[in-house]
């Protein structure tokens, strides 16, 4: 194994809240078997409308949610590979230092009652039982510098910062454990349009400086294409298409990707759609999840799940569609 992360057939469903009048065991199938490979040093982009399972995929990658089926294999920094599981606590702890999840909204992922200094160091302080405090503080301060915050921000609290600065704090926090992979879940969606660009540049800068790999999630295809080397398009918990970002932008093949491009940037497609909930299958899939909206739908799409197939020679493009011919 020489890929950083190898995800196969990742499956996750949620039980809908069992209220008094709720039907027993109603589920949403947020992930219906996703395959994904992440190479070392690569930025992998994930796009999809909201409700397509992007966050669920990211949270499963760091095991905030335990997956039901499938495997996540990780090639750790010492060259050993292991399977990421909830039960494997020792490895999981290390994995979570090397793979950091950056939340969408920094105002909820940073404890509002802590100072920046505490936020950056509390996790590591617990882990090291207070040893090497000075080294830790030095590293955290360095991190502040890397994300473009000032040393005097150390004693301030998140509420004293703007949204963009808060996201910088969140990034500094992620850097403290010297990660190899950042999973950035819509890290600019909660921010002002005016500061999005700066945060994206910062991400690119950090990636170069520390040689990070990255999973970059957004619902805006343009942003993802700008950031990522390869892009996966998610719909209804299934991967529709995966291709190097330049190829994808030049020539989208899957009908859903085309639709995404037509309606870019982002907002249009969602307003036409009723709600995110509708998009997530509530029954185990029997066909293509996109079939109900697909302009090219045929009977086969409803009865047979299209598997990702390589399309085009050596292009590295995978398309899961019955209607796209293998070239």
């Amino acid at each position: 194994m020489n890929e950083l992360l190898e995800v196969t057939n990742l499956t996750k469903s949620f039980q809908l809240h069992a209220g008094l009048f709720a039907q027993a065991d109603q589920r949403v199938y947020a992930l219906g078997g996703v395959d994904l490979t992440l190479r070392t040093g690569e930025t992998y982009g994930l796009v999809g409308e909201s409700g397509s399972g992007k966050t669920t995929l990211a949270r499963t990658l760091v095991q905030l949610e335990a997956h039901e089926r499938g495997t996540i294999r990780y090639l750790s920094s010492d060259g050993s590979a292991w399977e990421v599981r909830r039960g494997d606590r020792r490895n999981l702890e290390r994995y979570r230092q090397e793979v950091r999840y950056v939340f969408q909204d920094p105002s909820s992922s940073l404890d509002p009652r802590m100072t920046v200094g505490d936020l950056l160091t509390i996790g590591a302080r617990q882990r090291t039982r207070g040893k090497d405090r000075a080294g830790l503080v030095a590293r955290a301060r360095e991190g502040l510098d890397h994300v473009g915050l000032r040393a005097s921000d150390w004693d301030r609290r998140p509420s004293e910062f703007s949204g963009g600065q808060r996201q910088r704090i969140a990034l500094a926090r992620a850097l403290v454990t010297r990660p190899r992979l950042l999973i950035c879940d819509e890290v600019v969606s909660a921010l002002d349009v005016s500061v999005r660009g700066q945060i994206l540049e910062l991400l690119l800068d950090l990636k170069n400086r520390f040689g990070l790999s990255m999973v970059f999630i957004a619902h805006d295809l343009d942003v993802v294409a700008y950031m990522a080397d390869r892009v996966g398009v998610l719909y209804g918990g299934r991967m529709m298409e995966e291709a190097p970002s330049r190829l994808l932008v030049e020539k989208p093949l899957h009908p859903y990707t085309k639709l995404l491009f037509d309606s870019a940037p982002g907002a249009g497609i969602r307003s036409r759609e009723t709600s995110a909930q509708k998009l997530t299958p509530t029954r185990a899939l029997t066909g293509c999840p996109f079939a109900p909206r697909c302009p090219l739908v045929i009977d086969r799409c409803r009865t047979e799940i299209p598997l990702p197939r390589a399309v085009g020679p050596q292009s590295g493009r995978l398309v899961a569609c019955h209607r796209v011919e293998a070239e």
Partner: peptide
């Protein structure tokens, strides 16, 4: 249910902390 609690869990903080 807030994100900062998930974040702390990801940092392997003990539950009591």
């Amino acid at each position: 249910r807030q994100d900062f609690v998930s974040n702390a869990q990801l940092e392997s903080m003990p539950s009591l902390v």
